[in-house]
Amino acid sequence: MSRNISPILVKKEVSFEDLANKKLAIDAYNTLYQFISIIRQKNGTSLINSKGNITSHLSGVFYRTSNMLKKNIKPVYVFDGEPPQLKFDTIDKRKIIREEAFEKYIIARENKDFENAIKYAQMSTRLNHKIIEETVILLKYLGIPSVFAPSEGESQAAFMTIKGDVDIVASQDYDSLLFGSTQLVRNLAVGKKRKLPNKKEYVDITPELYILNEILEKHEIDREALVDIAILVGTDYNEGIRNIGPKKALKLIKKYGSIEKVLAAIGKEIENLDDIKNIFLHPNVTEEYRLVWYKPDKEKIIEFLCNEHDFSRERVIKTLDEINLSKTDQQRTLGEWF
């Protein structure tokens, strides 16, 4: 995830209802990572079935996707492919952090220090092949399309908005805006509260919508300039310049016109600058995807979630019933009778 450029972004609070009838490209890795790290039992262990396998991702995907279908939102999950070579530095660092956190998690759990256990368990979260595979199976049963990006999922999702095949990208990460996503929505959780990292506090969260054009118009810049700003601050592919935050970067880019000129003026360099710009401006994406939504296959979902993964049959059935009904009726307003 790139450094936080939110201070210069324009956001609107929206509700799930505002997203009705929209097609949403969901950054699958980003979302699954959240599910695996957040959906946990009180002692920090993930949800598991009777065979000892993790099911947090299935719970998250099933209930969040169902909630969207109930509101007539059409989701499509976009999965990452091979990360760009430049990202390996970031990936290596994340791996070390995860391994250290996992050791601390084991110690905290042995000491019955559940608060730290949860904290470190969340930090040690990783996605494996099985998690991805099971997610894809569940999505298929739910009738939701999956798209496999050749490289970054976010750039693929952004490309799909540019083409007009989907309306909005859903991710917690701002990068899709750099990739050109016309709209981005964050905080699409079913629940309304989120725990602050490393704190005991909970905050209310509401979905936030970012419209790329509004951001660019507000600052009178183009997307290339926004990418330049992000690179100055730091992305998954570079460290960023010390002491330059998003507001300062915006000022500098507006003053000098481009990142190259800014760097020359302040006497700094960014390694692989052209390649990094290229990742954002000309990402590796594919047009080979098909977006078709089918009716959820109830029997297969029940077999998969309840029989194989020990989900509550009653809850799953109730949720499926609700999806089905939302498709067949419409709320009228009193206006029709005035």
Partner: peptide, 11 residues
């Protein structure tokens, strides 16, 4: 309370 209905489609 006067509440507007939900009207089913395709029935």
């Amino acid at each position: 309370y006067l509440l507007a209905p939900r009207v089913e489609e395709g029935y």
